[in-house]
Design a protein around this nucleic acid. Structure first.
Lengths: 360, 360
DNA sequence: CTGAAAGCGCTAACAG
DNA sequence: CTGTTAGCGCTTTCAG
């Protein structure tokens, strides 16, 4: 294994000089740098990042803790994060808690022990007091994808969930639906809760029958919940799922019962996962800029890690918009007339991707 | 930041003793260990893995280089790998080349510089001679998910592609299809090529019209290729896609042209990605044990990293089986009789998951 | 611009 | 069983 020392010996310079030359720092004569570089390439020198990490105190990596990689939503988030980290020359340590709180805890610890530059996480379960303290004591910037508590010294990246839920609700209302089921996701999880709230606010204006079903926001639960929903409330004409993955489960369940979408049941999802446009029927859903959110998260980490002292948490909320596809039907006008596919209804100016509330 | 030294001072023992006590090594009195542990927890001591890595020479991580995370296939592989690494107490550094050879190259280098215990990779482009040498010189165990060259000192984990292709071909043949299109994926990629070969071997027995279309094995290409396929060969009654992701693209294209599956076109995929059972129509496909393969890959890395000297590469081939769902129709019997959904045709004894050819 | 020297935090012989 | 002593490979003052 060829080390700095080897390059130093071989080039006739001191390790410190070689180090500077290779790290691209100033204060090295051009010819010197060239010589060193030549030797380094000749010897096929590969810097040892571990050693560098020890010396500098920082590992050149940032951690990404994902709760469920099977949800394409998080894959896109990961892609955005990865790209951003890559451009910054940092490695991404992707950890997958697989919806297991214990695993999550172990990973948070592991990431801290690895002295990562920052951690971006989507939590399954809230962090314990101890874990939080740990993170701040190690002064590791943290970005949460689902806010757990407002008084945490952590940054957040969220979509405008309430507005998204509202859009979904207004859409269904406008199409004449009055008996609606909601696949609300788990309780006490910010994203599902906010989306649900937004939806309920919208439909509450008209008096509607709304049945809310809670359960984990994965496909399997979407399937099971919808089965229950349909058997308990057979009169329902529309379903709102707090994320697309649940909606996919709902599609299965709906078809199982012999119902058709959108003929018998209209369905609205949330996230606008790539698949939503491909599945049959193409799903009407609320678009969330997943990739950008992942990217934004590492940008925050980068910024925070550079700032001196206890960084001030940043909060970004990304705008959303309704994407109308073919899973909803207008039941107000007449029977049997499937809704025309229109371009997304003209959104309010702030509803495009980007910040709604720029960092506080 | 509390270090070993702090724990040592506070507990009255030497750092070396503390190190042993904390690393769970033998040769420490039980009461000593207890004391040390107590102090460590009181001080909230977190070992610095970077430092440990430097001292031991090995980073506690293994690298996973994935070419395309949007393909659920790789997500499952990653899950399997992650679980296995987790049980072994290692971190997984997930890198995503995003089908970009340059990015791939940079990650291979980065992983080597990070002195990972091993690298599992799915290559977009073959490794350069230099990269290969690099890897062996650093004696980093490598597991390839798509074999590139037989004389490489690298291990491989593959599915039994030829057999899978064969199963697909025989199935379509048996259903009476004689004009078949193949979405063959890119040339010079082992998996697509082998699958294609197996398929062609099967259908060659009967004289069939087979149109082979090459292109990248992602959904977008599946869509585009199928468009072309259908316009060039409108008489086609069946399509074989070398992976499910392409098949999904094919579904889009087929529906675009107003054709129905399986009424007008039968479709067979490969991989049996979770989604295949959910999409409409449920896709007949060749099951590949993705999760197990990911797991197997890290097990190989683990084994190799423990062995002394230049490890002997291991090669594992996982069995496959045809999963019949609703995307194929029997055109031999009569017209309009959709094929009954049967349990998978009784497979040869070796066709279940697991090793077909145990390590060579 | 370059060299000398100290040290990042931990492990690993080797003595005692 | 425990302490002493060297480093691991690199960065980083601090002199020169």
């Amino acid at each position: 294994m060829v080390t700095l020392k080897d390059v130093a010996r071989e080039s006739g310079y001191d390790v410190s000089t070689v180090s500077r030359a290779l790290s691209g720092a100033y204060g090295v004569h051009n010819t010197t740098r060239a010589e060193v570089l030549a030797v380094a390439t000749r010897l096929d020198y590969r810097p040892n990042r571990i050693a560098r990490g020890l010396a500098t105190g920082r590992a050149g990596a940032i951690g990404l803790l994902i709760s469920d990689l099977r949800n394409p939503y998080f894959v896109e988030v990961a892609r955005g994060a990865e790209d951003a980290a890559y451009s910054a020359g940092l490695d991404l340590m992707v950890c997958h808690s697989n919806l297991d709180p214990d695993k999550q805890a172990r990973y948070v610890r592991s990431l801290a022990e690895n002295r990562v530059t920052g951690i971006i996480m989507n939590l399954v379960a809230p962090l314990s007091r101890k874990q939080q303290e740990d993170l701040v004591r190690h002064s590791i910037p943290v970005v949460l994808f689902n806010r757990v508590s407002r008084d945490l010294p952590f940054s957040t990246v969220l979509s405008d969930n309430v507005r998204g839920g509202n859009l979904a609700g207004r859409h269904l209302l406008q199409l004449g639906h009055r008996r609606i089921g909601i696949l609300a996701g788990p309780r006490h999880h910010t994203n599902p809760e906010e989306r649900c709230r937004g939806f309920l606010n919208a439909v509450r204006e008209k008096c509607c029958d709304v049945a809310v079903f809670h359960g984990y926001h994965a496909q399997k639960q979407g399937l099971e919940l919808t089965r229950k929903l349909l058997s308990d409330n057979p009169k329902i004409t529309a379903i709102f799922a707090v994320n697309d993955t649940m909606a996919f489960g709902a599609i299965q369940a709906i078809m199982e019962t012999g119902r058709a979408i959108p003929k018998d049941i209209s369905l609205v999802g949330f996230d606008d996962v790539e698949l939503s446009g491909i599945i049959h029927p193409p799903l009407t859903t609320v678009h969330v800029p997943q990739y950008e959110m992942g990217k934004a998260a590492v940008e925050i980490v980068l910024r925070q890690s550079k700032s001196r002292g206890p960084a001030i948490p940043e909060h970004r909320v990304f705008g959303v918009r309704l994407v109308e596809r073919q899973s909803c039907r207008d039941v107000s006008a007449g029977v049997g007339s499937p809704q025309k596919t229109l371009p997304a209804s003209s959104p309010a100016p702030d509803s495009d991707d980007g910040d709604v509330h720029p960092g506080l």
